[in-house]
Structure formats: structure tokens, C-alpha cells
Amino acid sequence: MEVGKTTANDFASLIKADLAALANDAGNLANSAVMPAAPVSNQVLPAGFSFTQSMKDALGSVNAEDSAAGIRMADVDSGKSDDLVGAMLASQQANLSFSMLMQVRNKVMGAVDELIKLPV
């Protein structure tokens, strides 16, 4: 019985040491200077470019499109508007925008998973 406990404790301490090393490496990576990736097709990114801000802007845009489509559909439902085609087009555009955002999210998460799998 004591052998099993010792092995479990050893594994636990090894896992804790590995997690501490990973946290240390992540901290070092965050503090190190990272060269930006080469722009695609010779496009120059603005000096204040932020991926996080770009994603927030995209999310806000998709949310605004969804809200506008919801308002247009509610107006058609309540009889305030007779533009059913415009409401349906706005709804489809919002749906496509959301689908595109989800595809981008999935690609980013896949890239993060690949980065995590890279050997240090």
C-alpha cells in the first residue's frame, strides 16, 4: 500500500514541477520580444494593430448586425414594416457573419492547440 502512495506522491510532485516549469516558460515567452509575422501580400499593419482589438471589433460588428436583423424581423412581425425581403436578407447576413466569426475562432483555437503541442 505504501508503494502506491509513494508513486502517486512522486507523480503529483513531478506534475507540479512540470506545471511550474511551463508557467515559468510562458512568463519568459510573454516577456521576450517577439518579432511580428511577415505581412501577407506586402500589406503593412498599422503601428497600433492589436489582434485582440480586431477580434473585439469583429464581435461587436456581428452583434450589431444580429441586433439590426432582429429589429427588422420584429418590425415585419409587428406590421410596422412590409420589407420582408430586406429583413430576411439582414437575417441571412447576420447568420453568415456569425458563421464566419465562428470559423475564425475555430482556426485560432486550433492554432493555439498546435502551439501548446510544440516542444519547448
Rank of each mutant, 00 (worst) to 15 (best):
G48A: 14
G48K: 10
G48M: 07
G48E: 12
G48P: 00
G48N: 15
F51T: 04
F51P: 00
F51Q: 05
F51V: 05
F51A: 09
F51M: 06
T52L: 04
T52I: 02
T52G: 08
Q53F: 01
Q53T: 08
Q53L: 06
M55F: 11
M55L: 11
M55D: 04
M55G: 00
M55Y: 12
K56T: 13
K56P: 00
K56S: 14
K56F: 09
K56V: 08
D57L: 13
D57T: 11
D57V: 07
A58L: 15
A58K: 11
A58G: 09
L59M: 12
L59I: 08
L59T: 15
L59G: 11
G60M: 09
G60S: 13
G60L: 12
G60F: 05
S61D: 06
S61C: 01
S61Y: 08
S61P: 00
S61I: 00
S61W: 01
V62L: 02
V62K: 03
V62I: 10
N63D: 13
N63A: 14
A64S: 11
A64P: 00
A64V: 08
E65P: 00
E65A: 11
E65T: 06
D66S: 13
D66M: 09
D66Y: 08
D66L: 10
S67G: 05
S67D: 14
S67Y: 09
A68C: 06
A68Q: 13
A69V: 03
A69Q: 02
A69T: 01
A69E: 05
A69H: 00
A69C: 05
A69W: 01
G70N: 09
G70T: 09
I71Q: 15
I71T: 15
I71M: 13
R72S: 07
R72V: 00
R72P: 01
R72G: 00
M73A: 14
M73W: 02
A74D: 14
D75E: 15
D75M: 11
D75P: 01
D75H: 10
D75K: 13
V76E: 07
V76T: 09
V76S: 06
V76R: 04
D77R: 14
D77T: 11
S78C: 09
S78V: 11
S78R: 14
G79E: 10
G79T: 07
G79Q: 12
G79I: 06
G79Y: 14
K80D: 13
K80G: 04
S81F: 08
S81V: 11
S81R: 05
S81D: 08
D82I: 12
D82F: 10
D82S: 15
D83W: 09
D83V: 07
L84W: 02
L84D: 04
L84G: 00
V85W: 03
V85Q: 13
G86P: 01
G86W: 02
G86K: 02
G86N: 01
G86H: 03
A87T: 04
A87H: 03
A87L: 02
A87I: 08
A87E: 01
M88R: 12
L89F: 04
A90Y: 03
A90V: 04
A90N: 03
S91R: 06
Q92A: 15
Q92T: 11
Q92M: 12
Q92Y: 09
Q92K: 12
Q92N: 11
Q92G: 07
Q92W: 09
Q93G: 06
Q93T: 10
A94W: 02
